[in-house]
Every structure is written in C-alpha cells, then in structure tokens.
Design a binder for these strands. Structure first.
Length: 479
RNA sequence: GGCGCGGUCGCCAAGUGGUAAGGCAAAGGUCUGCAAAACCUUUAUCGGCGGUUCGAUUCCGCCUCGCGCCUCCA
C-alpha cells in the first residue's frame, strides 16, 4: 500500500500522514449551521469528509470522528424569534433534515454527532481557562479574545494580521474592541434573545469557541485531522487555533484539510442568482442520490467543482457503467479455473486505486483505476477469458471501491422514499413487471416478435429496461 | 489593494521535463429476431507571449481570463 499523503493547509505542503496514535485517527469536521436546509455546496464538503473517513477506514485505521451541528448563531436566533419558537425547536427540523440528507447521500455517521447547545458548559470552562491566562477582556458583558497576546495568529491562513485594520469594522455588539481582529468568545445577551446563565455571566457563545471546546472534549487537546470548507480557514479555524493553543499550549490539530467550493454552471452559487440547490430540489427534478454523490466525489477536493446538470447526468451514466459491470460479474457464468493474468490485472487495479486515493485523496485517479479495470475485464469477459477463480478478486476490488465511493448499490428509489423525499412508489409494481417479462419470454419462445416488442415498448414507457442475455435469460432494471 | 487557487479533447477531469489517464457525449462498426449491455474505430499538443533547456503542457517571468479569502458563507 502506498504512503498516505495529505495536503496540510498549515504550511501548505502535501505531507505523509501519520496519526498521533498508531492505528487510530482522531478527526473533527465542521458541520452545518442548522438554520436552513443544507445545500449542495455544503455537501461537496461533507462528501469529501466522508470519502476521507471511508478511505482511512479502508486502510485499517480506527476512526474517532466528531462532527458538530452549530445550533446557535445570529441567523438561528433571528429566524426562531420570527417563527415564534425556541431555538431548539426551530433547529430540530433542520437537524433531522440534515441527517436524512446525509443518509441519502450515503454519508457515514461519525462516531459523535454533537450539538453546540449541549456543550455550553464545556465552552464556559474553556473561556475560564483563557481568562486565567489573560487572553481575554470584557466589554459590556461580552468577552473577547485578545489576539495581540497570541503571536502565532494567522499561521494557518497566512493572513497578514496588520492588514486587518483596527476599527475598520466593529461587530454587532457595538462595543469598541481593543483591536478589530479580536473576536467574541462570549456575547452578552440582547433584549429578548435566548441566553444562558453561567459562571462567566449571562449570554451565548461566540461562533468559534464551540469547535475548540467540543473537539478537545471528545478528541483530546491535539487532534489528527481538522477539516471544513475553504472559507472556514479564516477566520474560523484561525480563531479555533488561537483559542485552543492559548489554553493548552499544545498543537491543536496536526493536519488541516479544506475543501474547495463548488460553482454552479460556472457561477458562484447564491440565492440571488437562483442557482442555489438543496438535495430536495435536485431529487424533485428526478436526479438520483448516487449520481449526486458521484458528481461531488469525482472531482478532487482541492479543485473547484463546477456543478452542472449536464455533469450530474454524466455522473449518472458513469454510475450506470459501474453497476452494469458489477451485475455482469455477479450474474455471469464463468468457466472453471483461474487466470493468472486476470488475477494480476486485478491486483494492479487495486494498487492503482490505493495509490490514487493515497495521493491526497485523488478521487479522479481512484476512479480511473476502477474504470480501467472495468474495461479490461469487459473485454476479457467478451472473450470468455475470465474464470470462476477470478471473480472473487474482482468482487473484492469492487467491494473496496464501494467502501469508499458508495455508489454501486442500486437503491436510489427506495432510499428516497424511505427518507421521505417522495417519488413514485414503484415497489408494488414488481410482480406486474415480472408477469409482463414472463409473457414476453413466452412470446419470444414461439417467435412472436411483434408481441415481444409490444411488451418491451410498454415496459420502456414505464421506465423499465430489458436486457436479453445469450443464454435466453432476461434481466430488467429501472431507468 | 493584500493573500491564495485555477484555465488540458464538445462537457467533466488525471498527469509528467522527453511528444497527453479515465468518464460522459457524438459518429461509424461488431454482437443482437429487435433492443440493451459490452467491445472496436474516430475526435486535443495542454489560455497568450517570452525565457531556461537537446527537449516544456510540465520550470521561470509577464499578460489575460475565471474563482476564493481578507465581512460568523461549506
């Protein structure tokens, strides 16, 4: 197996990945702010994180992975107030929607899914630690972080701190901070706003403190990997580093990984441009979850992904090709024996697949390794040069492939229905389809091709594709 | 303005100092009662201009275009 190399935003180099504790990876990923449905841009990042997680697991690492749900922030407070409900009640709907979205995209659950509002005490304790070390100052009930006390500030994003002009922008608390760069650890309550009564006063946490407090609570003071979207590198992650490292004196995270954003049809995704999509939007248009997952996963995470409907269609076709191959492998009849060449070819593909993903999660390379094998084995199968003894190895390859990419299982329709995204319930049609398929088979037997074709056409109109095999059998699938 | 990323076949997208993976799409063909699947063939000199080099898409410089961050937006 190849050495795993990952691009570390800290330092900007691609380095060998070696976790702190042998065989175990402690990873924290910044999750969504649950003030609305998550959009495909969010999921570009979450799918990347999932691919990373799955690949590390495939490589034998035990994962200890935490993803947070930010369920308190300005938008949530404002929206909840407008809706006349508490913030917990307001966010619950979007939390559940997010879980469903993850499931439908085959995003594995991390070991811990945690909410900010369940960890106020942990944040307060961390702020107290910072207070003791004089990294904070008070202002009208709020508590701020004094960046001037932390010389390493800016090391992640290589932001020139001097460039952030003091007083250029004062935050909503309207309090004159010592420096514009400083950020709130704790915000004093505003009239009518939700707040917590704590040892450090009444109020609510600033945005950044939750990740520091929760990451260290579950993963220890030094984690292996911390990831998020590229936009989070500054100021969010920079501030997390400042808080955490000031409190502990230790390196907070050893590898920082950031996913590039996606564009939609070449333009920045934004609500005003009307190119802002949630999963629900896409599924309502008839696109499959597997196609979306493939589209999001196929472009290496550090490259901007231009999301297009044409591309989504292409992804669907690519998934089809892989599934067709898997079916052929599963259902084909192979002669007894084993082919040394084929065994070697499969081993080579496995090596290439691993090398691609080991190379900073180069999914395009990993996919190419799979498609190369698909083509070569299709050729071999056409020539009857694949034997029973070769099949297990090929299946193992596909199994490993899908432990990372998770697109082979043909359950898009069921999943959409089960998770409440709607779509026609066709599960009851199977018996009916089987019956028509049998009728057609009978017609073919008596060489009544007019009748046979009539049934093919009828089924086609219902989205059913029939494939006759050489041995007289027939396989059907939904489009 | 400061910092950073990127412009490779119609679309998506790898990659290397020595003449460019893979997927989708298109056209033609093989197979098939018809079809589907599969296979075969065809389709690029790598944004532009210079430089370094025996040789650059790959290194350097300039230009140009797109994008991101510098504002609690993944």
């Amino acid at each position: 197996m190849a050495e795993i190399r990952l691009h570390n935003t800290m330092g900007g180099e691609t380095e060998a990945f070696v976790p702190l504790r042998a065989g175990e990876v402690r990873m924290y990923t910044c999750g969504p702010t649950v003030y609305d449905y998550a959009h495909i841009g969010n999921f570009r990042t979450f799918v990347f994180q999932d691919i990373l997680r799955r690949f590390l697991k495939l490589r034998g690492f035990k994962m200890l992975h935490v993803m947070n749900l930010t369920d308190v922030d300005d938008r949530i407070i404002a929206n909840a107030a407008a809706a006349g409900v508490g913030i917990r009640e307001y966010t619950e709907k979007f939390v559940q929607a997010f879980f469903a979205d993850c499931k439908v995209l085959s995003i594995e659950s991390p070991e811990h899914w945690i909410r900010a509002t369940d960890h106020i005490e942990d944040m307060v304790k961390l702020i107290e630690r910072l207070q003791k070390k004089s990294f904070t100052y008070d202002g009208e009930g709020s508590i701020y972080y004094r960046i001037a006390k932390f010389p390493a500030y800016g090391k992640l994003s290589q932001i020139d701190v001097a460039g952030i002009q003091a007083g250029a922008r004062v935050d909503n608390d309207r309090y004159e901070k010592e420096s514009a760069r400083d950020f709130a650890l704790w915000k004093a309550p505003k009239p009518g706003e939700h707040f917590w009564e704590t040892e450090i006063g009444a109020g609510r946490p600033g945005w950044h403190i939750e990740c520091s407090a929760m990451a260290m609570k579950y993963l220890g003071e030094t984690l292996d990997i911390h990831t998020g979207g590229i936009d989070l590198s500054f100021p969010h992650h920079e501030n997390e580093i400042a808080q955490s490292e000031a409190a502990t004196g230790k390196t907070f995270a050893r590898y920082w990984m950031h996913a590039e954003h996606l564009l939609v049809e070449g333009e920045k995704m934004s609500k005003s441009l009307g190119n802002f999509y949630t999963l629900r939007d896409l599924f309502a248009k008839g696109y499959k979850p597997s196609a979306l997952r493939f589209a999001l996963a196929s472009v290496p995470y550090r490259k901007q992904l231009n999301f297009t409907f044409d591309g989504l269609q292409q992804a669907a076709s690519s998934v089809e090709r892989l599934r067709n191959f898997a079916d052929r492998l599963a259902m084909g009849k192979f002669p007894a024996g084993v082919s040394k060449e084929m065994v070697g070819r499969i081993a080579q593909a496995a090596e290439e697949f691993d090398a691609g993903l080991s190379d900073d999660l180069n999914t395009a390379r990993g996919l190419a390794a799979a498609f190369d094998l698909v083509r070569d084995m299709n050729i071999a199968m056409d020539k009857n040069a694949v034997f029973q003894g070769d099949v297990a190895g090929a299946r193992e390859f596909l199994g490993n492939f899908d432990r990372v990419f998770a697109v082979l299982e043909d359950n898009d329709g069921e999943m959409l229905r089960a998770l409440g995204y709607g779509g026609p319930d066709t599960s009851g049609d199977d018996a009916d389809i089987e019956k028509l398929v049998a009728e057609r088979q009978a017609a073919r037997q008596r060489r009544d091709f007019a009748a046979s074709d009539r049934i093919r056409k009828e089924l086609a109109e219902r989205g059913i594709i029939l494939e006759d095999s050489k041995d007289g059998g027939v396989r059907w699938k939904r489009k």
